[in-house]
């Protein structure tokens, strides 16, 4: 059964279970971004090509969101830096009390979200690559 992607237009699933994200590349200045926008954020050109990010990236920053007073709702949130410069924020797979190190090589994988009303859905998440020094 295919996952219930919360935003299907963002995600390209790969055969090995990992993901790519559907972003954009500006034909005018080369700037890459995700999510997509109407025009390039850097130069305002509307000449935008589809660009696929991932599955590999570097963990640019990471924190544990403990806003909820219930520990079971705490989540790792991070920012990934992709090879062509795009930065993307997303959830991080791992132990909320032992986050991976900044600079760790990561990959895009499915991440399941559970909402307060019991619904679930799949988005993208970042996972430290196996054999990486996390």
């Amino acid at each position: 059964m295919s996952p219930n992607y919360l935003v299907p237009g963002w995600i390209v699933p790969l055969d090995d279970g990992r993901l790519k994200l559907i972003g954009q590349r500006c034909s005018g200045c080369g700037t890459q971004a995700f999510p997509r926008t109407t025009a390039c954020k850097k130069c305002s050109s509307t000449s935008l090509e589809q660009a696929l990010f991932g599955p590999d990236a570097i963990l640019y920053s990471v924190t544990t969101d403990r806003t909820s007073t219930s520990a079971e709702n705490h989540k790792l949130v991070g920012q990934a830096q992709f090879i062509d410069g795009a930065y993307v924020q997303g959830y991080v797979v791992g132990d909320v009390n032992h986050p991976p190190r900044i600079g760790a090589p990561i990959e895009l994988v499915p991440y399941e979200l559970r909402f307060s009303d019991g619904r679930t859905g799949t988005t993208y998440g970042f996972r430290v690559k196996e054999n990486a020094n996390a």
Binding site: V62, T63, D65, G90, L113
Partner: peptide, 21 residues
């Protein structure tokens, strides 16, 4: 839904990411 799917629901998290960096 896009905000939730992209982990963008909490301003304090964004500042925490800046702090960690």
């Amino acid at each position: 839904m896009k905000m939730q799917a992209g982990a963008q629901t909490n301003a304090m998290t964004i500042f925490a990411l800046v702090a960690q960096r």
